[in-house]
Amino acid sequence: MSFEYYAILLVGAAAGGFINGLAGFGTALLALGFWLQIMPPISAVSMAVVMSVLSGLQGAWLVRRAIFDQPKRLARFLIPGIFGVPLGVLALSSLDPQILKLTVGGMMVLYGGFFSLRRTLPAFDRPTPLIDSLIGFVSGVLGGATSLSGALPTMWCSMRTWTKSETRAVLQPFNIIILFLSALVFLFRGNYTWEVVKDIIIALPITLLAAQVGIHVFKHLNDTQFRRLLVVMMFASGTILLGKELL
């Protein structure tokens, strides 16, 4: 492999790791912008899922107290999401993944663009167990079908009046577990060839270091700044997703 190949590999690893450490999601959306230039889509996506899981473990450890303080809140998203993953995998035979990605990307752009222009963000403070479960289930389906498990929970959680640690205590472990299940599906499909494994080994240290930098920035954000960051990230991630799918 050329120097250019490894340079793009490592830049993508750093970008994906940083945004995961900062926001708790977004590894695939940023890293794939680089990795799709140097490797086949199946290899790039399979690699991004693994890097999302491994780098996300650091962020989950950071908010471990918030996770254990509200285990039922996480369960309302996670348990339906786990059941949704195999349905998403089965849906691949009858649904067009590109249409799903364009639909989700459009929602992210509209949501992020609208609330980025507002001075105040919406604030739901009452319990919404049915909505939480529905969002978790649909996100599990999207995770199994397209690896986009984090979009809907992020949009919903950014509208809650939770602290930044409470928000991350839902988003981070949810994404880790759903994407881990997706990685198992990819493993059984034979996506993890020696070339993919080798690239993961090379890129992983950079991703982990970059995630630590992102976590450092996260610690200096207040709750409102973090909610605003999630909204802006939705707009940016949706724009990137639409651009990749359309172009």
Rank of each mutant, 00 (worst) to 15 (best):
F114D: 11
Y192D: 14
L242M: 01
T146F: 05
F83Y: 02
G81K: 01
S46M: 04
E195G: 10
E4T: 07
S94C: 13
F174M: 14
L184M: 12
K164R: 15
S149W: 00
Y5V: 04
G214S: 15
L246T: 10
L92C: 10
M155I: 10
I38D: 11
M47R: 04
S52L: 14
F124N: 04
L36H: 03
L10V: 15
S43D: 15
L152H: 03
W156K: 06
L32G: 07
F68L: 05
W194P: 04
S94I: 15
I79S: 06
F83V: 15
N175A: 11
G26M: 11
R118Y: 10
P80H: 01
V232Q: 14
D199C: 07
L181A: 01
L110H: 02
T167K: 04
P127C: 03
E195H: 15
P173I: 09
E166L: 01
V138M: 07
I79F: 07
R118H: 10
G214T: 08
I202V: 08
F77P: 03
R227A: 09
G16T: 05
S149D: 03
T120V: 07
L229G: 01
G243D: 07
S165D: 15
T154S: 13
L230N: 07
A169T: 11
V231P: 01
N191H: 09
G21H: 01
A145G: 12
R119I: 02
A44K: 13
L221D: 03
G16C: 08
F174C: 03
A169E: 02
W156E: 07
A210H: 00
R160M: 04
G21F: 09
G33I: 03
L54G: 08
P97A: 08
V53M: 05
I201D: 09
